[in-house]
Amino acid sequence: MALPMMAVEGLHKNFTLHRRERLNLSVLTDVSLSVYAGECLALSGPSGTGKSTLLRCLYSNYIAQQGRILLRHSGEWVDMAQAKPRKILAVRRYTLGYISQFLRVAPRVSTLDLVAEPLRAQGVAPNVARSRAERMLQRLRLPEPLWSLPPDTFSGGEQQRVNIARGLIAGFPVLLVDEPTASLDADNRAAVLDCVSEAKRAGTAILGIFHDDDARQALCDRTYDMVAAQPASCAG
């Protein structure tokens, strides 16, 4: 039986906007789910039902007001909803990857170094990290002449693949993905799905948002319906 890698229990997220007369927006109400090693769980539901917000809470990019986010990190359970900043950073360095839709990176750094960065952060030697980055970029079909350039002038699809390469290279045991194949053509989509499937076969637990049917069919084992799972008061 597969190991649970992440367990979310009774998660609530609301935003208090102090500059709008403390307006309170409830986005997630009582979300509970778990993700096992080697499986892919898809979040489904129309726009505005909190899919991306949930991923951001799980990455501790957003603060959840209530509930637990348990992650198996180097042999122990860490509750990301309570963890101190340094623990969160350590979990992100070794255990939890997040492929967002946007590439936000330091300027003037080459694509190759950006992709090697998550490995360097784990202490992998520069030459090893770079050669693994080369292999990853090759598999994701990013043309070699681009590797030495910073990605700010790349097309949307190229930037997306740089982002995916950064998310996959370190072999994180748990991966959050937000629409990994949006804005990719068929060949590049197939290359991305191939790499993500391989990570899954290697035991990565994946939780993601997949609007594209090909991606969902190729990767997902189960679906978590954001509307059905939450009390009606909060949906939409």
Binding site: H18, Y62, P85, I88, L89
Partner: peptide
């Protein structure tokens, strides 16, 4: 005080939000 992207993307204190 917190992880940088969290403080910037989901600021809690009224002044941080401003």
């Amino acid at each position: 005080q917190g992880v940088t992207d969290q403080v910037l993307d989901d600021p809690q204190a009224p002044y941080s939000q401003l």
